[in-house]
């Protein structure tokens, strides 16, 4: 019996073997999915994670306050990160050894410590230890995000600058432009064009990372999505607010992810 099955298997062509395995995995997935659907108590899940009245309660404030704040943190962190990253990248490419060193150390130190620790340090640690508080509601979170995102962007920006043909700098210099003029007018505009897809990716990652800002004290009007969802869960003893917050994140990230894919496709074509 075993032997004849073995013979039957060996008699199959390679294509039929592939088809067999594919069929087998479909069956396996179907069994797991059906098992999941049957095993889960859907009434209970609906009540605790997606209760209609609680979903309705979230709107419109989850969009007008929480999503708005998430976007504000993202934009502030992105702009700050871009400025810090650009400065670090230029320092890294500079002729001056001390500049290169400072930049390298900054990048290693900042990337070697978790973002949450930076957020806690700036939003909580430093105010308590030194009595210094970064002003404005968004200040501490935005600063922490900028510091860390800047360190990650530095490498992206440096790679972008280095990807611009060396002849461009030589041509600019040969016309009498100083290094900084050549950078500003000739190299950076071309470098940023190359960096649009990776920078958009950074933007999406940052949008999700703003959720860590929820760890430091916020007022009712400065809650971002994660804090909104978390507080909602505690308040209502129901998971619905967090589930809705998750869906709002998707609403923001999926179009952007699609856009990056398009940008990358376009960039690949124009090469």
């Amino acid at each position: 019996m075993v032997l004849s099955m073995f013979d039957w298997w060996r008699s199959l062509s390679k294509r039929r073997k592939v088809r067999f395995w594919r069929g087998a995995s479909y069956v396996l997935f179907a069994v797991l999915a059906v098992g999941f659907v049957v095993a889960v108590d859907w009434g209970r899940v609906g009540d605790t994670m997606f209760r209609a009245d609680l979903v309705a309660d979230q709107f419109p404030d989850i969009l007008l306050i929480a999503a708005k704040n998430t976007i504000i943190y993202t934009i502030l962190g992105f702009i700050g990160g871009l400025l810090i990253g650009l400065m670090l990248a230029l320092m890294r490419l500079s002729q001056s050894k001390p500049f290169r060193w400072v930049s390298a150390i900054y990048i290693d130190v900042v990337r070697g410590i978790p973002l949450l620790v930076w957020i806690l340090l700036i939003g909580l640690g430093i105010p308590i230890a030194l009595g210094i508080r970064v002003p404005t509601t968004y200040g501490p979170g935005a600063l922490a995000l900028s510091i860390v995102v800047g360190a990650y962007m530095a490498e992206t920006i440096r790679a972008g600058i280095e990807a611009v043909d060396r002849g461009q700098m030589e041509a600019a210099r040969s016309l009498g432009m100083s290094y900084s003029k050549a950078m500003i007018w000739i190299i950076l505009p071309q470098a940023f064009r190359l960096m649009i897809p990776p920078l958009t990716n950074e933007f999406i990652l940052l949008l999700k990372d703003t959720s860590l800002v929820s760890a430091i004290g916020v007022t009712v009007t400065s809650k971002e999505l994660t804090r909104w969802g978390r507080d909602g869960v505690i308040h209502s003893a129901n998971a619905t607010p967090l589930v809705v917050a998750g869906l709002v994140y998707l609403l923001l990230t999926i179009p952007m992810t699609r856009a990056v894919a398009q940008l990358e496709k376009k960039a690949a074509q124009s090469k």
Binding site: D165, G167, Q168, E170, A171, A172, S174, I186, P189, Q190, R193
Partner: peptide, 9 residues
């Protein structure tokens, strides 16, 4: 230059 090096942007 040999390779022109016009500013492509």
């Amino acid at each position: 230059f040999q390779r022109f090096n016009l500013f492509n942007h």
